[in-house]
Design a protein around this nucleic acid. Structure first.
Length: 797
DNA sequence: CTCTTAGATTTTTTT
DNA sequence: AATCTAAGAG
């Protein structure tokens, strides 16, 4: 990512003075002069204000689709073009590498060569790394420190827990990792952890474990992701002169996705911004969906307080979605409290309403969804403009199965990342030790991969020796093979391994690093291991390894490559193929598509039960924001769906439509009636309902509607999905739309059922009503236990 | 030490 | 249901 050391940084001949005519900015200006206003021209008044309010703190509240990135890039172009700053005077931080890449590209397009080499445009972590490498000694590191990924962290935590004799069953390493991450996200070092929280883990040892973990990191000359920010804070607090240097250097600061900043990032920014106070944060409180990993919406709500006199610009004109989609999304998000409040508007036509359809089970939902995509495809709708957004990855499987069966091309976005695959991590481990023989974590990872008979016992022995001598594992291995403390067999394999590593380390000096990698993979037997493996994905893994070696060629040296991998866990994806995109709602943030499918809108799944349990109302609001993000990804069509039966952890459960569906404004919604085959050839009572497709008879959902209509007609209410003339419509063939009708109302119509009544459910059998909430009932089933169900699925029993 | 089997574990994701 | 982890047998 940052291969060339920023040559531009070093010469600063005329700090603060007007730019010399030969400066980059001046050349940029010269180039831009004739079209000086060009880059401002397409902007609306609000956007223009966001760009032109250059000095002092600015908060830009940019709703979905309001041109946020455009404002950000134009602002940078404007700063450069008006000679307020040179590219290297500007600090621009993003959260993801993807966002950073995109911004780089767009600035390049706007400013031309002058925008190149913005050395301080990058993710928080990339910039933090860059700063730390320069001042590593001041925080007790060497400048070639390694950056640990999540799995290395866990490995290290396990060791720490073992050292302190803590039962790993009761206090899993993951949990400790979570706690420490949480503290780091909040900017807390080991000594700053509140005593109460420190005591919450492992009988009061939380803080001590944190300290021990940091000590282990230090001896390894390693940092984790949290440290990349936390150590910057430490560096600046303890070295005011260093801080001041950076404060002066960054004349203008820009922050993307400000609503996602955590406390550590906020503190980091605030320290830097105290220099010139030219800080512009762009964000949208309604799109804050990362609260569970430490993001603080409060940061955005508090901005004006922290930066008195801040200008606040609201971008409310949406350029993406049609009227109905926007109305649906706005109506939904309006149910949230505690937001800064924006009203998105569009000048686009109303367009199609958001559709809602139900299915008997998740498999049928997937089938209907795929059919719907096929019919769009038949109408020449490009597949690349269709996305399916799910709440959890587990939903993807059934949908993928369907796509595969139909031969519908698709791609999963944001799946397991390239550098996180086991074979890549293994290969990386080999390279890491070659580059840095003290990398114990990497050594542990591959000492017995491929299997060479060096197991736990040997490793323990090495550990003991290494700790006693205070040397790295590899060196310990070196020494131990010279003694006779090892069994002969172990001794000879270990000796061979040790010798291989020193041979490879020498090879790095005289061979291109990708060739060395190739050699290592072959000589270590790693490639062979996968060649012998006959499992289905072995071929793919070998393919990945090839790609891995090839990708190394793009980097000047091994160290540069390793740093790239540590920070950018992401291999750039091939774009533009004619495929449907499948991803989680989280992964969809920042993207847009003509047509968006949103399956699985069921209570418990979305809003997710766990989010509700863990964070209560705040959790619900975050889920609602997630729904808002999902809807606003759509330009022309949004299609919601839900299933009334879904397999959760392998068990079928009955589900009820998401409460978010009730919250959508009726005027912008169409309910799609069940397709014709739904009610074909009905046997009225299916003793043993088959979850697999509706071909087995009338699905319960449809059957239940008659029931609901009957029971609710008097109260004027309607069951979900019911519509007058349903049967007639069914005969007519394709889906029929009933405009503006319905929407399940859990309020309004009282259910025909009362607490204590005996009832019968087609799936769960007989039971007793325990509670009633509109048409949603809590029932204690004789066999299946307590469940929430829609009254329409129940017969009086 | 390695392989097998029983058991638990199951959101969202970046760096 | 599927997958990963840890304990037990060979």
């Amino acid at each position: 990512m940052q291969k060339p050391p920023d040559a531009a940084m070093t010469p600063r001949p005329d700090d603060g003075a007007p730019r010399a005519p030969t400066s980059i900015a001046a050349r940029a200006m010269a180039g831009l002069k004739p079209a000086a206003a060009a880059y401002l021209e397409g902007l609306n008044a609000e956007q223009r204000r966001a760009v032109e309010t250059t000095d002092g703190p600015v908060l830009v509240l940019a709703g979905a689709g309001t041109g946020k990135t455009r404002v950000l890039t134009t602002r940078i172009a404007h700063l450069i073009a008006t000679a307020r700053a040179r590219p290297f005077d500007i600090l621009a931080v993003t959260f993801t590498n993807k966002a950073a890449r995109e911004m780089k590209a767009r600035i390049g397009a706007l400013v031309g060569p002058a925008g190149e080499g913005m050395p301080w445009l990058g993710t928080f972590h990339a910039i933090g790394t860059k700063i730390l490498r320069r001042h590593a000694e001041l925080v007790g590191l060497k400048s070639d420190f390694t950056i640990l990924g999540t799995d290395d962290q866990i490995r290290l935590m396990k060791q720490v827990l073992a050292d302190q004799n803590i039962d790993e069953k009761r206090w899993p390493a993951r949990a400790l990792g979570h706690a420490i991450d949480g503290w780091k996200n909040r900017g807390l070092g080991p000594e700053q952890v509140p005593p109460g929280e420190s005591g919450a883990f492992a009988f009061g040892k939380g803080g001590a474990l944190y300290t021990a973990y940091q000590a282990r990191l230090a001896t390894l000359n390693a940092v984790d992701f949290g440290d990349l920010l936390l150590l910057c804070l430490k560096l600046w607090r303890e070295n005011p002169d260093v801080l001041e240097n950076y404060q002066q250097r960054f004349r203008y600061i820009l922050v993307d996705e400000y609503q996602d900043t955590n406390v550590a990032q906020y503190l980091w920014l605030r320290l830097l911004a105290q220099g010139h106070r030219n800080v512009a944060c762009v964000g949208d409180d309604d799109q804050s969906i990362y609260g569970w990993r430490g993001a603080e919406v409060d940061n955005i709500l508090r901005f004006e307080h922290d930066f008195p006199g801040a200008a606040v610009v609201r971008l409310e004109r949406n350029y993406r979605s049609t009227g109905h989609i926007l109305a649906a999304a706005s109506g939904l998000i309006a149910k949230n409290e505690g937001r800064l409040g924006k009203t998105l508007r569009t000048e686009d036509e109303p367009g199609e309403r958001v559709t809602i359809s139900g299915a008997w089970d998740s498999e049928e939902e997937a089938r209907l969804l795929a059919e719907s995509i096929e019919s769009l495809q038949a109408k020449k709708h490009p597949l690349s403009e269709i996305a399916v957004l799910v709440r959890i990855s587990a939903q993807m499987r059934e949908i993928e199965d369907r796509f595969v069966q139909l031969g519908l091309p698709y791609r999963v976005i944001g799946g397991p990342r390239f550098y996180e695959r086991a074979e890549i991590r293994d290969a990386l481990a080999y390279l890491r030790i070659t580059a840095n023989p003290a990398d114990d974590l990497a050594f542990e990872r591959i000492i017995n991969t491929p299997k060479r008979g060096l197991g736990d016992a040997t490793l323990q022995q090495l550990h003991g020796y290494a700790r006693a001598e205070r040397i790295p594992l590899l060196l310990a291995a070196c020494r131990l093979v010279e003694t006779d403390e090892l069994k002969p067999r172990v001794r000879s394999t270990l000796r061979a391994l040790v010798e291989s590593f020193s041979r490879w380390a020498r090879a790095v000096e005289k061979m291109p690093h990708s060739e060395v990698a190739q050699t290592i993979l072959e000589e270590s037997g790693y490639t062979e291991m996968w060649q012998k493996d006959r499992s289905a994905d072995a071929a793919g893994r070998l393919e990945n390894l090839k790609e891995f070696v090839r990708s190394m060629e793009e980097f000047p040296d091994l160290a540069g490559f390793l740093e790239h991998v540590a920070l950018v866990m992401d291999a750039s994806e091939a774009e533009g193929a004619e495929r449907v995109s499948l991803m989680t709602l989280h992964a969809a943030k920042g993207l847009e598509f003509d047509t968006v499918f949103l399956p699985g809108w069921e209570d418990g799944l979305f809003p997710n039960q766990r989010a509700l349990d863990e964070s209560g109302r705040a959790g619900l609001e975050e889920e609602r924001r997630l729904a808002h993000v999902g809807l606003t990804r759509a330009r022309k069509r949004a299609k919601l769906s839900f299933a009334v039966n879904r397999r959760i952890h392998g068990l079928w459960s009955s589900t009820i439509p998401s409460r978010f569906i009730d919250e959508l404004p009726e005027a912008s919604v169409d309910v799609i009636e069940a397709p014709a085959h739904f009610s074909a050839g009905a046997s009225r009572f299916d003793r043993n309902p088959q979850p697999f497709g509706s071909s087995y008879g009338t699905p319960g959902w449809q059957r239940a509607q008659a029931n609901t209509n009957a029971s609710n007609a008097a109260g004027g209410g309607r069951g979900f999905g019911s519509a007058p003339g349903g049967r007639a419509g069914a005969r007519s063939g394709g889906p029929r739309q009933i405009e503006g009708e319905l929407i399940a109302k859990s309020t309004g119509s009282a259910s025909a059922f009362l607490g204590g009544m005996r009832v019968f459910h087609t799936k769960f059998g007989p039971g007793t009503v325990a509670g009633v909430d509109g048409n949603k009932l809590t029932v204690d089933f004789d066999k299946a236990g307590r469940k929430m169900v829609l009254d329409s699925f129940l017969q009086p029993g």
